[in-house]
Amino acid sequence: MSVEERIRVPPATPVGGTRRHHRYGERPGIAYLFLTPWVIGVLLLTLGPMLASLYLSFTDYDLFTSPEWVGLENYERMFTEDPRFLASVWVTLKYVLMSVPLKLAAALAVALLLHRASRMTGLYRSAFYAPSLLGASVAVALVWRVVFDNGGPIDRAFGTGGWTTDPRYALLSIVLLAVWQFGAPMVIFLAGLKQIPTQLYDAAAIDGAGWWRSFRSVTVPMLSPVILFNLVLETIHAFQAFTSAFIVSSGRGGPSDSTLFYTLYLYQKGFVDFRMGYASAMAWVLLLVIAAVTALLFRVSRGYVYYAGGDS
């Protein structure tokens, strides 16, 4: 059910994007043969369960007994009589709005530095990328919990108190964890930067542009398709964030529901309260929201994204 696979993303190569069309016209059978494992996976592990969850979202299902049809009741209850649902929406929105811009800014900043560096770039690139490899890892979240705990290293060094156990800062500590894992968008930014023709910078320099001016007038416009790509991807990921909040709050979304991510509440409804029907309905609402937000991002992008491809 991951959305990004079904969203058409523009090519990440802004300049000189040459399209080659491979033709399997003569023996299409072979192509399908090689596709089979993937097709089976999609049908059995993605499409089938998705349809099942769509059906379950209209039922009352407690995991043990057969589902019972209740129509739109689950969807109605969400918005009318479930304050925790609304709380989880609010927490998730805050998380998306904080973590995505910060993460992209960090990724772009480091990408710019690495792009200029001449020695040992490979080493630095790997070092900055490493945290994202551990992205969904339970181990990192556990480390985070210890580091930001009361009596943990951060508390002892700066006297900040426990962040993960304080409802004012618990979400912030999870945002930091996300920002720290900026490696994936950074690598994509780096690739984008390498595609920008150097003569544009030369021309800008001759016209008297300083660093900031050429960043604003050359780098950002030329990089804009890549920025959009990263923005869409990271937004979708942020809406689906789960592991970090689950681990840091021991699955409770606490303290005081301050880290109750949408997906975490969905999990609690399904696997703790045994309300699978309600949880399925929540999953579909999330899917629709992510689709709408993505559509909005593309719509807004028309104003700032510059596609150079096709005319070089």
């Binding site: 059910m1 993605t46 969904a136 996300a178 689906q240 789960f242 997906t263 999990y267 899917l287």
Partner: peptide
Amino acid sequence: MRPIARWA
């Protein structure tokens, strides 16, 4: 982050 929806 691993997409929870896919996992579920």
